[in-house]
């Protein structure tokens, strides 16, 4: 009985959020804020900086979606999730979109009922070893102790790789990246394995990054992308095409520098459609006409987002590699805006 009273009191006190309407898009618009699930802290992808602002590659996706839907790139509520809580958070409606280094797999798509809206980073699981070990290939790692950051598909890939190569290893599962790194640096494990991008990000923070090498083997395909709940196609379309807008913008040469100029109208009809000066793509999505422009204005096109957060000029120092545009030998290929 007492419990009900307390619950009632807290509910009335406005702690619990309001009721949800039919679709996520309407919810977000009504709320005026996008709830975006991110990691609890992976530098370069999603981490709060010294002043408490979230920044990173995944964060930029959230901001672009918020800008496209609400016209305000700061109207995002970042919800930190762990590997354990992320799917429940999305399934239960606590977050609208999950942009958290989540690998697109069959079972997550089909069995867990989520919808991946594209790939914002093509990753693969790699290995990092101290150079002094003199290891040049992952196949030489027989008997090694391997630190794994848990909560991803990493454990499974690792088990499969060692099993198929018929070599043994000692797994050390670690909850957070910071602790895994401490274990690795102290020599409690010989190898650190996680997504290659994460390895690069981690190595960048070392005292002596040169003493550690990334092995050439990439043992898995890890297409990372934002995902939404299954069945809400309008909302899925919004997230998918916001991501595509960023990718197309790079392909079409729309940058945050020339955005205002381009938005005034160009000779290229696709740019015009993307930026909303021609056609009614925004209306079809249920958004304003300048949604694409807003999304790009949030953090620049895909190339700029990449360069600012994880590119070669940053401490993370990742090359574009697979994540270059298809015209430059990469895998990024946005369907046309028409």
């Amino acid at each position: 009985m007492k419990n009900t009273v307390i619950l009632g009191a807290l509910t009335i006190a406005g702690l619990s959020a309001g009721a949800a309407a039919a679709g996520t898009l309407d919810d977000v618009k009504a709320r005026g804020k996008l709830n975006c699930g991110v990691t609890t802290g992976l530098v370069g992808f999603a981490a709060p900086n010294a002043s408490g602002e979230w920044e990173g590659f995944d964060v930029a996706v959230c901001r672009a979606v918020a800008a496209a839907v609400l016209g305000d790139a700061t109207a995002v509520e970042f919800v930190p999730t762990t590997g354990k809580t992320r799917f429940t958070a999305l399934a239960s409606g606590e977050i609208d979109v999950l942009a958290r280094n989540t690998t697109w797999t069959f079972s997550r798509d089909v069995d867990l009922k989520f919808e991946f809206t594209g790939v914002n980073y093509y990753d693969g699981q790699g290995f990092m070893v101290p150079k002094e070990l003199g290891v040049s290939s992952a196949k030489e790692l027989d008997g090694a102790t391997v630190c794994i950051q848990t909560g991803t598909t990493t454990e499974l890939n690792l088990a499969d790789f060692f099993r198929s190569n018929n070599i043994s290893y000692e797994p050390v599962p670690i909850e957070t990246n910071a602790e895994a790194q401490q274990q690795y640096l102290a020599g409690a494990c010989d190898v650190y394995t996680t997504d290659a991008s994460g390895l690069a990000a981690t190595r960048a923070t070392f005292e002596a990054p040169d003493e550690h090498a990334l092995l050439p083997e990439i043992i898995s395909k890890e297409p990372l992308g934002p995902l939404v709940r299954h069945g809400d196609h309008e909302w899925g379309d919004v997230v998918r095409w916001t991501l595509n807008a960023l990718i197309s913008a790079e392909e079409l040469g729309v940058t945050s520098a020339n955005l205002a100029e381009m938005a005034a109208g160009t000779n290229n009809p696709e740019i015009n459609r993307l930026l909303g000066t021609e056609g009614n793509l925004g209306e079809m999505l249920g958004l304003s006409a300048d949604w694409g422009k807003n999304a790009i204005a949030a953090g620049g096109n895909y190339g700029e987002v990449f360069a600012n957060n994880i590119g070669e000029a940053t401490p993370i120092g990742l090359a574009r590699g697979l994540n270059a545009q298809w015209t430059k030998g990469g895998l990024l290929y946005s369907p046309p805006f028409r």
Binding site: G83, G151, E155
Partner: peptide, 11 residues
């Protein structure tokens, strides 16, 4: 409660 929960999503 850890890896199995993560992998199967059967929270």
């Amino acid at each position: 409660g850890g890896v199995t929960l993560n992998q199967t999503g059967r929270a």
